[in-house]
Design a protein around this nucleic acid. Sequence first.
DNA 1: TCAACTGGATTACAACTGTAATACAACTTG
DNA 2: CAAGTTGTATTACAGTTGTAATCCAGTTGA
Lengths: 124, 124
Amino acid sequence: MKTVPHITDAEWEVMKVLWNESPRTANEVIDAMQERTEWKPKTIRTLLNRLAQKDAISFTQENRVYAYFPLVSEGECVKSETNSFLKRIYGGAFKPMLVNFLKEEQLSEEDIKELKDMLDGKRK
Amino acid sequence: MKTVPHITDAEWEVMKVLWNESPRTANEVIDAMQERTEWKPKTIRTLLNRLAQKDAISFTQENRVYAYFPLVSEGECVKSETNSFLKRIYGGAFKPMLVNFLKEEQLSEEDIKELKDMLDGKRK
DNA sequence: TCAACTGGATTACAACTGTAATACAACTTG
DNA sequence: CAAGTTGTATTACAGTTGTAATCCAGTTGA
């Protein structure tokens, strides 16, 4: 199983932008980020650098400008992060988390139906 | 809503021991921990100190010995951590995570039945 | 051509984390 | 009473993370 690098909170925001659309130049990423955060451009460049260093993204160079794109998919990362979260909080077991959350969360009638249908789908 | 302090990975292991049973002296915690980890006693004491500093636990003193106990419940912490996790990874929405996970995870027939029953229970 | 600007590379720096070791004070034992 | 033991308090130290600023080289406008 491919291992994805660990992506921090701040980096995750940058990844979202690139998952949403790529390749994007540093400045395009910065523009997109500034719609969602207050981060300074320099900060975002640092995050891009770190992500590139850990091979979460890469870039092509045109003239002086880099265009970045993800090397890891959102799905992979979500799965990886969720697994380590589950491991930490629930000892790795998925069902207890579900049980816990179903107790807490409020779901609409349609949500419930959708989830039940999914559960039915899993029944072989 | 009460805010719980942020508990790190390593600290979480200590909290589990105290949630499991408390109060426990430092040495009791250390013994319990050494069944699950390789950490040195000094390390575990550091973690107990940090948890006490951030008011996640407290202690009573008998003679020279401290007996530690949690100030925050496991449920509170689980909820808090899960919320920040959800926010980071799924933008705060619970259902997308469920959907994602139901796709991936394998559940037994009984698990599926149990979850469906819970979903039914939520239907008003 | 020279100064200003722009984009990337390098450096900064404190807080938090993991992972302890050392110092110290009290208690026990010879 | 002196020395070792034990439990706590203090200190250590590098890696990660958030959050940038500074430096430098190439590009561009005057």
